[in-house]
Design a protein around this nucleic acid. Structure first.
Lengths: 165, 165
DNA sequence: GTCCATTAGTTGGATGTCATAGCATTCAGG
DNA sequence: CCTGAATGCTATGACATCCAACTAATGGAC
């Protein structure tokens, strides 16, 4: 057995066990791995999107509009679908609107609400960004098909257990 | 088979396939699931830590010091172990120092460097926070032991593939 | 009909991350 | 030695997220 653990997470597991927290060590490692893997994945995605002038959160918002029937949704719907705070949507739409990728429109039936509509430029950029992400990130995660299937299944279990859907 | 898919991620998978991106759909779902699961896990952890006056990133820094032999490490070491930018460490140490949980000390051998040392108050808070996290989060992720094992294995594969360690 | 709770969105403040630039110190090469 | 490259840390700015407070509009209760 090797005593050299280069992986900081494996080292943390050892520390947890040595301090008498063996019962929670696996859960701690799972959470820590999740955080770190997300950090890495996000960095890869952002690296692809940065040259195009958008961030991942703005890309997500664009894709949500692309998949909507009319290319437009109320801010509140965007917020609930993306699972982010209302004010985060306000922020993202401000920037996307400034870049000409979406437009704000008054809701025809509810004067409180605002519709966000994707522009032609927004659709073009979203299509191009998706092609690049599919090719450079989503298509090559460094995992086998079985691992990807298992990963999604386990994370889905975890999300459902937390009441995500 | 149900046609009602409440899970936004499952809905996104359908959209990806319908737009001819079936080849990358599984990878996209994996990344999206990862992002969302991390968001949920972080929220759970922060909810436990918030009443104690610390955030997860500051907690991680404290635990790193707890596990160090002398309870003190150079800023640069903290940065590399936690895998965050130097300036993020400066920020976190500023706040921890303000709360009396760590102290900055001049490095005895290298006047460029600064040691971060955990205080007694820092150790107490870290111990208390760990007990709560172990009990309320790490010990109950809503996953079976086998799922946790598989999750960690897959995420480790992914991290290693990305050159994380 | 009128009043109040709810909903929609924005604004401002706090926190965290990264990138870049700048200052101080260390270390190596000539 | 002495100069230039590399290292350690901090300051500033750009983004994203959340929360709390505030404005505006809707809609139900009476």
């Amino acid at each position: 057995m090797t005593t050299l653990h280069r992986d900081p997470i494996e080292a943390a597991h050892q520390n947890w066990v040595e301090h008498g927290w063996a019962g929670a060590a696996d859960g701690m490692v799972a959470i820590t791995s999740l955080m770190r893997a997300q950090q890495i994945a996000l960095a890869r995605v952002e690296a692809v999107l940065k040259p195009m002038g958008v961030t991942f959160s703005r890309y997500e918002l664009l894709m949500l509009l692309v998949f909507s029937k009319r290319g437009a949704l109320p801010m509140s719907v965007v917020s609930s679908r993306l699972q982010v705070h209302q004010s985060s949507v306000t922020n993202a739409v401000d920037r996307l609107e400034g870049a000409g990728l979406v437009s704000r429109l008054p809701h025809p039936e509810d004067r409180r609400a605002t519709l966000v509509e994707i522009t032609q430029a927004g659709r073009s950029l979203a299509a191009e960004a998706t092609d690049r992400l599919n090719a450079e990130v989503f298509g090559d995660l460094g995992l086998s098909d079985d691992d990807i299937t298992d990963l999604v299944r386990i994370l889905t279990t975890m999300r459902r257990s937390a009441g995500d859907f």
